[in-house]
Nucleic acid binder design. Structure first.
Lengths: 209, 209
DNA sequence: AGCAATTGATTGAAGGACCATTCAGTGGAA
DNA sequence: TTCCACTGAATGGTCCTTCAATCAATTGCT
């Protein structure tokens, strides 16, 4: 019986796939109702599955949330690393590639931002949230510091501190994300990206060779 | 603050004062347990009062939270406005005064930061949170834009956009706050303030008269 | 291939805990 | 005595978790 179009949705799925489905439902639920408003009922309803499934695939709600944050962090990491490795770019262009990644729709949608900051808001209490996102942030910050250093030495901006530039960039990233979340009307992804590019060019004026 | 020992604590207090006490207990509780972990029991226990009091002084838990955010926002606003009006400062020094206010211990302690971001995390869902903090942020951003404009015209940095500078500054403020919350070991208040001053001086080099 | 038996995923009701809110009653100040 | 602040038990609701039952796919056996 060669079924053509009819992608029959199987009742059961291997655990790995079901987990992803539940994580995505969790992201949607958090973006709609916040973390405190996200219940196992809201998640499973969003996924169209039954209540008990979360505790079958994840040990607890707590684990589901941790895995959701890890999922987002991995997704983010994958994105900027792939943009970075596209062809051979100059250090400055690599920096701009990271900026692009930061404000890419797939990472920086209103939905995702709401979820990121929902987790940040719980961060002070849950050490596990902090370490999960910190690992990835730090990695990127180190890469940025390295790129800044390359630009500084290559173009002769010796008065600048690469480490400080990287920290300021990281701060700008997070701060603009927050502003996009708080004032979506006043801040688009493009605005933010341009803002950061302008900042970088102000800090390190391109040598007019 | 209490110098004398014999401050007899009266059993009852005028509503205004009791409200402040409950709000402060709420801030402490949120900083310890997050918003989702903050219950009326945790708040009243923190304040050393009985469970039913919150619903007596506030209409509901929701109102308590809203008032708590408003309290923080007012506190913040009062601080930067007072620092701004201290004596007659140059535009650049006024800007620096706002920077100082942003990283003042009374506003930017780990405890307060945890609470700020707890609210930001719920912001996407609760419109009331957004407007409360937005009003005050916008006011300050306008003041900053104005100061930037004064510096730009006075010192001849015509290539800079005051509005953009103000937005970047606002972004830096929020982003550094977040970094201080996430990585308290790597980021002190002083570091952050220096970081921002450096940024401003990089954007608008002081004229070497 | 046909047919149990086994395995693993899924369901949803039930249990037990916790939470916001209510309210009848207490206490103290004016 | 009156009035307002305050107390804490009771209520009704929601939530996480557990688990016995169900279902479908796969395996093993003939």
């Amino acid at each position: 019986m060669p079924g053509i179009k009819t992608i029959k949705k199987p009742r059961t799925l291997p655990s790995r796939l079901r987990k992803v489905q539940l994580i995505e439902a969790t992201i949607t639920s958090i973006s709609k109702h916040g973390i405190s408003g996200t219940t196992l009922t809201s998640v499973t309803k969003e996924a169209g599955l039954s209540l008990g499934l979360v505790n079958f695939h994840f040990k607890s709600k707590e684990v589901l949330l941790t895995e959701t944050l890890r999922f987002l962090a991995e997704e983010h990491r994958t994105l900027w690393m792939s943009k970075l490795s596209k062809s051979n770019l100059s250090p400055r262009d690599k920096l701009f590639a990271i900026v692009d990644a930061q404000f890419d729709p797939s990472v920086c949608s209103r939905k995702k931002l709401a979820v990121w900051f929902a987790f940040f808001g719980e961060t002070a209490q849950r050490k596990s949230y902090r370490t999960t996102s910190s690992d990835i942030d730090m990695e990127r910050q180190d890469v940025c510091a390295d790129l800044f250093q390359q630009i500084i030495t290559a173009e002769g901006h010796e008065q600048r501190d690469a480490e400080g530039c990287a920290r300021a960039l990281e701060g700008l990233f997070d701060g603009l994300w927050l502003n996009m979340l708080l004032y979506p009307a006043k801040f688009t992804r493009k605005d933010a990206a341009v803002q950061v590019r302008t900042h970088i060019n102000a800090i390190l004026p391109a040598s007019s060779t």
